[in-house]
């Protein structure tokens, strides 16, 4: 799941300052799950902004709110056109993808990001999320006992642990487990320690030019699919 954090109220207020009529747009999928931009957060932000307006006394803004199931699919955005008739800007609480999807879908209205899209991760406990995947496009979890050194090692090294590993913790942050110690222990449990003896060559960043695209269908010549 994509994990994000809502931007500070100050930053949001600075962004919306030039636009009097703001639609706060939530996303019902990842942003709901990570408590950054679901319907509840949309409404909380709405109330916070209004309170800020009242307190600062410069109340030029009017706010509306709406939440779609998923901002990153244009079909879910079809309801938006009627919501945006009297709107000067959309403050999207979707992830970076959502913001771009809306910008692409509604060409004439500016879209502002209300959250900082942070990482791909998982819930540790209610209200706590941890990063787990860097989307490197070259997954090596097979060799590392299901523990990703690219995200979980501070340095992202492929052949660890480094000399900074101390008592199973990382030298950069003593609260963070050393990913390579975790990998070692897991491989030991799986009786695959031989995997630790291999050398992994550096990743070839040139091999994955951006933007990436995944095609899970084949091109079929016109006419062929009709029959």
């Amino acid at each position: 799941m994509i994990v994000a954090e809502q931007k500070s109220l100050e930053e949001i207020r600075r962004m919306i300052a030039p636009y009097p009529r703001v639609l706060i747009l939530g996303c019902g999928t990842c942003m709901t799950v990570c408590n950054a931009g679901g319907e509840s957060e949309v409404s909380f932000l709405h109330n916070s902004l209004r309170l800020a307006e009242v307190r600062s006394g410069d109340g030029i803004h009017t706010f509306t709110e709406h939440t779609v199931k998923r901002q990153c699919d244009p079909e879910f955005l079809e309801t938006l056109s009627e919501k945006t008739i009297d709107v000067d800007v959309i403050l999207s609480l979707g992830c970076g993808i959502g913001v771009q999807a809306i910008a692409e879908y509604l060409g004439d209205i500016p879209v502002l990001p209300g959250v900082n899209t942070s990482f791909m991760g998982m819930t540790k406990e209610s209200g706590v999320w941890d990063e787990r995947c860097a989307a490197c496009g070259e997954c090596r979890l097979e060799d590392t006992g299901g523990i990703c050194p690219i995200t979980r090692c501070t340095k992202g090294i492929l052949n660890g642990p480094c000399a900074g590993s101390k008592n199973g913790k990382c030298e950069a942050n003593k609260d963070v487990d050393c990913a390579w110690i975790l990998i070692y222990k897991r491989l030991e449990r799986l009786q695959q320690l031989d995997k630790m003896r291999r050398y992994y060559s550096p990743r070839n960043f040139r091999a994955i030019p951006r933007p990436r695209r995944i095609l899970s269908k084949v091109e079929i010549a016109t006419g062929e699919s009709d029959g």
Binding site: S8, L9, E10, F44, S48, L51, A52, R55, S56, G127
Partner: peptide, 16 residues
Amino acid sequence: KQRVEKVRKVLRSIGI
């Protein structure tokens, strides 16, 4: 208390 802390953060940021 969780909710109160969340609201206090907003209050702080708008000068209350």
